[in-house]
């Protein structure tokens, strides 16, 4: 009964490619890496264009160099602290806090989210508490963080973890709570015991949501990091920005802000790459970026 292939064609695929819906090959993505140079140029048009405009506007004197130093000044500033090693010191401190905080957040928020999402009792027990805690912005925690952990790494790690934990928790709860009941029914009909449902069905089914939570959590954690470093630390990119302002070095303020942008971009793309690897089966993640 080798009818499957014909039928796939009949099911709506115009070509004779075996699976009707096709493997989502890179060629299907309009801006896939395969397009090479051309694609890269399209991606670069906006950032390069903006930098150029900014530089030109500064050269023409439309923007005060103190309020917004031109990119050339920022580049000189960058070179200055990059060569004397201070930049790397700050970046290293921030990276450590970010990674440590994120790992702590993941290891607490994912299991907690699974518990709350899976057990109706825990959901009810924690409901009001979570509703009260979630709206408190990360910045509001800085004072108590310094009281608890003092000035330094611990305060920053705490705020990063807190900033990351909230989206991770919310998305994990949501993913676990809203697993399609039909998967659970199918699994039970196939002989899955009640204890195995969580591991075999609920967790894999919730994984895309958990992953969204991780990615949003990582993005959210930079706010916590920068605020903590501005007020509660003597190193890190946040401290760099704060200190530069006190020294009237607005070029270094710009450099610090851009470093946050670069760190955020790199970490976000790393998560995205990881997501593609882990969630090949899931269409939601393979289409966009």
């Amino acid at each position: 009964m080798a009818v499957a292939v014909q039928e796939a064609v009949r099911d709506g695929a115009p070509s004779a490619a075996p699976p009707a819906d096709g493997v989502p090959a890179p060629s299907r993505r309009r801006w896939g890496p395969r397009r090479g140079l051309e694609t890269l140029l399209v991606y670069l048009v906006m950032p390069v264009g903006l930098l150029a405009l900014w530089q030109i506007a500064s050269d023409l004197g439309w923007i005060s160099a103190y309020l917004l130093p031109p990119p050339s000044r920022a580049a000189t500033g960058f070179w200055e602290i990059a060569t004397d090693g201070t930049l790397w010191l700050h970046v290293k401190a921030s990276l450590f806090r970010s990674i440590a905080g994120f790992l702590i957040a993941t290891s607490i928020a994912v299991p907690l989210g699974v518990l709350v999402g899976w057990s109706p009792l825990f959901r009810r027990l924690s409901h009001i508490t979570l509703l009260l805690l979630i709206p408190i912005p990360i910045t509001a925690w800085i004072s108590i963080a310094i009281v608890w952990f003092g000035i330094g790494d611990a305060s920053a790690v705490f705020l990063v973890a807190l900033g990351a934990a909230v989206p991770i928790l919310i998305n994990t709860i949501h993913g676990v709570e809203w697993v399609e009941p039909i998967y659970i029914e199918a699994a039970r009909m196939l002989g899955t015991g009640p204890r195995q449902i969580l591991w075999r069905i609920v967790l894999p089914a919730a994984l895309p949501n958990i992953f969204t939570g991780l990615r949003l959590g990582l993005r959210n954690s930079w706010a916590g990091l920068v605020v903590a470093e501005m007020i509660g630390a003597k190193s890190g990119v946040g401290y760099l920005i704060w200190d530069a302002r006190l020294m009237m070095r607005s070029d270094l303020v710009i450099v610090g802000m851009m470093m946050v942008g670069v760190l955020g971009l790199v970490s976000d793309q790393t998560m995205s790459w990881l997501g593609h690897r882990l969630l090949r089966w899931h269409e939601g993640l393979s289409r966009n970026d």
Binding site: A4, A8, D11, P19, D21, V23, R280, W281, E283
Partner: peptide, 11 residues
Amino acid sequence: QHFPRQLSGGM
């Protein structure tokens, strides 16, 4: 080795 989303309804 295909995932379900790569298959047609009949498959």
